[in-house]
């Protein structure tokens, strides 16, 4: 009895394994088409952004940029500290935490500066993500697949720039109905989100929403192309980045 029971269990186990793997094999996708990048798509080896903060005199000047971003991506307006932010403002000492100079001009002591995802060359968020829900694309954009995100928030702990937001509550309750941009989805409860450098707009040949709204005060282009706007701006002006000592190589530069 004992022996036959053992054999039975063995056979049952092996056949269950064979069956499930067989089923899994059969479920493989049969894709009959091919894929390509759109003709109009803007292309780059490494997208980067240069924000000319000298052209913004007050926090109000940044408002159109933030509104354009949050409208384009249906970002909810959640009150309190469980909020969602793709682009936002903070004081100089909060943005550039390494610069501990107490005797700065008023513009820096009191002024506001814009923050967004830095699309790092060495992104810690990508390094820590346990599912590959956040990843680096060939053009340097750090993107997210909200379908795959399990909401573990390791990326939020990992990001040194506080660029990531978690949907603590259902975001739909905090977005107008109909949504500001019906072409773009919203997010769902329990996933992390952040700025995408408007990858969906680049694919259609459009520059990022904030860049368009900035009337030339924010440049966007290929950092690997010496003739690009961003490279020219960086060659002619003094620029800084957030927390450069961490080696993440942020892709967002500030002219100050």
């Amino acid at each position: 009895m004992n022996n036959s029971r053992r054999t039975f269990l063995k056979v049952a186990g092996v056949s269950a394994f064979a069956l499930t793997t067989g089923v899994a094999g059969a479920a493989q996708a049969k894709i009959i088409g091919t894929y390509e990048q759109g003709d109009k798509a803007l292309k780059a080896k490494r997208w980067a952004m240069v924000i000319d903060t000298r052209k913004f005199t007050s926090a109000d000047d940044y408002k159109p940029l933030i509104d354009a971003c949050h409208k384009a991506h249906n970002v909810p307006a959640i009150p309190g500290n469980q909020e969602i932010k793709w682009m936002w403002l903070d004081h100089y000492d909060r943005v550039f935490t390494d610069d501990m100079n107490a005797n700065l001009p008023d513009k820096f002591k009191k002024g506001m500066f814009p923050l967004l995802c830095n699309h790092c060359t060495n992104p810690p968020c990508v390094r820590v993500c346990p599912t590959g829900a956040t990843y680096k694309m060939h053009d340097g954009i750090i993107a997210m697949d909200y379908h795959r995100c399990i909401g573990c928030r390791f990326c939020m702990a990992g990001c040194p720039y506080g660029a990531r937001s978690f949907n603590f509550v259902d975001p739909r309750k905090f977005i107008a109905d109909p949504v500001p941009n019906p072409e773009y989805p919203t997010r769902m409860i329990g996933v992390v989100e952040k700025c995408t450098f408007c990858a969906e707009r680049l694919a259609k040949g459009l520059r990022p929403a904030c860049v368009e709204a900035a009337n030339g005060a924010v440049m966007f282009g290929d950092l690997d192309d010496p003739n690009s706007d961003v490279r020219k701006a960086l060659a002619e002006n003094f620029s800084i980045r957030r927390k450069p000592s961490l080696g993440t190589q942020p892709g967002v530069y500030y002219l100050i």
């Binding site: 990508v126 390094r127 599912t131 590959g132 795959r148 995100c149 399990i150 909401g151 409860i189």
Partner: peptide
């Protein structure tokens, strides 16, 4: 404690479905 901390616990198996050896969480599992 990990499961109750997840925002999308029903997707927890994504850690095995999409193994990412660059994440310490993968090794922890």
């Amino acid at each position: 404690f990990i499961v109750v901390d997840l925002g999308q616990p029903q997707r927890a198996m994504n850690v095995m479905l999409h193994p990412t050896p660059n994440s310490v969480m993968f090794y922890d599992m």
